[in-house]
Design a protein around this nucleic acid. Sequence first.
DNA 1: CGAAAATTTGACATGACTCAACTGGAGTGG
DNA 2: CCACTCCAGTTGAGTCATGTCAAATTTTCG
Lengths: 194, 194
Amino acid sequence: MNRKEIDAFIIAHLLKRIPISAVEQEHFCSLLTVRKVLPRQYLLQEGDVCKYEFFVVKGFLRSFFIDDKGNQHTLNFAMEDWWISDTKSFLRETPSSINIIAQELSIVLQIDKKSIDQLYRDFPVFERFWRILNQNFNIAQNERLLSAISMDGAQRYRAMCKKYPAIENRMPQKHIASYLGITPVFLSMIRRNS
Amino acid sequence: MNRKEIDAFIIAHLLKRIPISAVEQEHFCSLLTVRKVLPRQYLLQEGDVCKYEFFVVKGFLRSFFIDDKGNQHTLNFAMEDWWISDTKSFLRETPSSINIIAQELSIVLQIDKKSIDQLYRDFPVFERFWRILNQNFNIAQNERLLSAISMDGAQRYRAMCKKYPAIENRMPQKHIASYLGITPVFLSMIRRNS
DNA sequence: CGAAAATTTGACATGACTCAACTGGAGTGG
DNA sequence: CCACTCCAGTTGAGTCATGTCAAATTTTCG
């Protein structure tokens, strides 16, 4: 995949949400850096400020938090056509408490805060884009939160498989478990009884 | 509290996030309807499309979902200076699966979708406002999600009290429990042992 | 004051975790 | 190509966290 194809991919992503002119497209792409990431490579490590928002062109990423007992808790994952970042650290430029790691060989586009802020000033239509992105993300987060507080482990697992059928093949069970808020041992038991 | 004071209150809320001219302020306020809500009065009922976003000027609101066993699960609450709505239903104009109810005698400002959409066209600066609002909401939701998947009931309760000290006086325990994803009986036990 | 709702309490049941042992690939090096 | 290791996943036993139910108590509110 060359740069031209990569740009076309993210532009298609934008055009699904907002109309933008050729000039805006070109300017936007000029702010992006392509980055190839190896499996197990970190894009963000706990303690560092999250300097970029990442758009996944190819591959699979995961963000997670490590508690004081050393257990991982998967916050989010991201595959092709998704964004991933630590919003709080990115916006407020504070040290992050999470990690972002590539699960597979991946290609991502990254954009830094200064570029986005400038972009908002030059082309306000991008405010609209990120507003829409955030809204959709909100909707998804709300649904996940609802699952978390109202369903048991088995129900959450079934709901997740239904919502993201691809996930079973791309994310190891232990990470699915940590996304659902249960232990891998317990997830294994859920799967046996169903 | 008269209309003038109410307008001043929400304008102060806006100005904390974006700079807006007098003209923009006036236009924005013209799109808002003041609504007085009695305790237990519904602003949104399951099955209806959520036609408004609500800004709380005074009082206390709560959104909740009812599962098939009849249990309530509190999704969010909102006090003075907060917004509340069902984002998904509002944006996509689909029937909501949640309810929004006033817990206290409240005063809210409501704005409908057509008005917001027009506002975005007339004054793009409001795109920025809602982008910022959504971002901050995202950050809060993320933290809550992290609590939900990584902490036990007692820890979540302590974290909540610390984050929202006012909550203990304004929200009955059973609703705090349903916000935390535990039963009121269990919350009572947590409180006894601490 | 009296009724209804919220909270507490205790006994018991179930969900979910821990730990440790075992199984079965997926690399890796000889 | 085999032997080895390493890690993910499974299984079972025991334990802790949390839920359910029902009764007692307190609070709220008309």
